[in-house]
Write a protein that binds this DNA or RNA. Sequence first.
DNA 1: TTCATTTATGAAAACGCTTTATAAGAACTT
DNA 2: AAGTTCTTATAAAGCGTTTTCATAAATGAA
Lengths: 338, 338
Amino acid sequence: MNKRPTINDVAALAGVSKRTVSRVINGATNVGKATRERIEAVIQETGFAPDKQARGLSTSRSYLIGLIYDNPDALYIDQVQRGVLSICSQKGYELVVHPCRYQAEEFVEDCINFVRRSNIDGVIILPPVSESKHLADALQEKEINYVRMASLDLDDHQNIVVSDDRAALSDLARYMVSLGHKDIGIICGPQQYYSSQERLEGFIETLNGLNVDVPNNRIIEGKNTFESGIECARQLLIQSPRVRAIFANNDEMAAGVLKVAHEMGITVPDDLSVAGFDDNLLAARVIPALTTVQRPVGDMAAIAARKIIAHIEGSEVSETETYLVKPHLIIRDSIKKL
Amino acid sequence: MNKRPTINDVAALAGVSKRTVSRVINGATNVGKATRERIEAVIQETGFAPDKQARGLSTSRSYLIGLIYDNPDALYIDQVQRGVLSICSQKGYELVVHPCRYQAEEFVEDCINFVRRSNIDGVIILPPVSESKHLADALQEKEINYVRMASLDLDDHQNIVVSDDRAALSDLARYMVSLGHKDIGIICGPQQYYSSQERLEGFIETLNGLNVDVPNNRIIEGKNTFESGIECARQLLIQSPRVRAIFANNDEMAAGVLKVAHEMGITVPDDLSVAGFDDNLLAARVIPALTTVQRPVGDMAAIAARKIIAHIEGSEVSETETYLVKPHLIIRDSIKKL
DNA sequence: TTCATTTATGAAAACGCTTTATAAGAACTT
DNA sequence: AAGTTCTTATAAAGCGTTTTCATAAATGAA
């Protein structure tokens, strides 16, 4: 018996029609107890498992979930994948990955094709792609299930999982001020992204609320890369040598700050405090270890997976399922009390 | 026209039978020129694309390629995924990811099920899972296509892509000696993995060839994590304070060495040189930037993808397609000339 | 011209499942 | 006793492809 058993084999062996076997597989109730048990025994014995393609052809389902992203942060992607899979594998779905180029002209079309070609049942979209209204609209129109992960509440709560970066940055601001910091510089992220805006605003507003002012020339826009962090840090530290603390929009750029400080003979955290965002691989390994903000990425991904599966299966997303998660501060060695 | 067009729609619109359309789709030669052009026009117009599931049901193909791994290095995984996808998307395949637990009892069964359930056409297996003879045998027996990525030539060349770590480590050894190093310590990887053995041997043999001896007490086995790197570095530097250079089996552990050196007031690279392996995200960002070894991971993955697709499609792997790639040394600031 | 090939097309079966009728009993009503 | 409902089962159609087997038309050889 090298060939994989089909539903017909099972039916024949159990002496029933395939319709009845189908009922058993799909957990229908109206099957006689004796019959059901006989069929289940045969299934056990033969190791039968329904063919996903055949089943899909019939139900127009593929049991595939797509993951769409254009994000260079491999660690983030990895955590998301694992989070999603922890749920998928429980529910019998597989995960198909689809990195893409957000900026490309045919980007939306490309994503739609991806879904169509393989009959993907639903997609999870990661930032910054998730901020594309264009894509979301296209999916909506084509009636494709989707859930977005984002840092901002920009969709129906059934279709999004958001991390409250603003609140986390507020915590960070309070923490810095509580340690006596008043001369603060910022290397923010690209302001074309809502997520970068949120972080910047959350940070500044709280500082202002605590009577700490951040002059505009102490705010520099970076590109979220290590190299960009280096450039911005140079500019900032030369322009405003009195700055005693810097918040960088991510750990990559914070690592750049560390590099520049080292070059310039500035000791961190004694002369300069530094904070990052992400709790990237770097954060704990760099010297001094970075104080940063950790988002529960895996958890968010798992929530997204539960939501998308609920959509697919038409079951209600349980009301208790949240859509908003709050990141938390990871305090290490890069911020010093003045 | 909200519904996706099927082959029947195309046939009807072109006024031919679906058999003929099928011929055109699949590039058969025996179709009249006029007919072919008419059909192609209709396909263009309607945006028809064959349904993968239906096609798969017929051909018992899924156009899915699986990626099996149990590797905590997110960067490595990410590079592999992108490398594989660069080929897959050209050829109309999608990538399904399957992280697993190598140590688990049901690991082999789990992988087989993964393939069976979704009719995965073939799998690419990453280290260290790729070292499992058990899994390879099971796949062979079930006639499942696979290609392994490894650091060691342990399979038919059609089924493997190997990175010649041994040669790279030999280069590193020569480089260190050329800078005058003789007091060298090693933090090697888990010796249960062939790949760790290869690196260690490649390094030591070359050193020996250059008349540099590494006493056994200067070789410590780590677990490839940052924390393990810290422990091993402490042990090594306390036990053998005269060591002036350390090779760590990966960048994570090398970062651990940097951390310990900093704690102990040892300046890198002035008092102690350090080398890593991987060219991890960390390598360039840490201070001082690590001299390390970079494997062309993306390229290897692309080769693996080409091979697996060739297997699936029964076409010959082009003879020019290599199976062996050589990593190369990335020289940065962590090794100093004595 | 006639027969043998090749070339171009189609009808219909098959792939393995779900689902829409439908039917046969059994178990209630009246 | 005859009608109604459940309950449990089946036959057969359908999902969108590919593929086997025919067949018709066009070409070439005799």
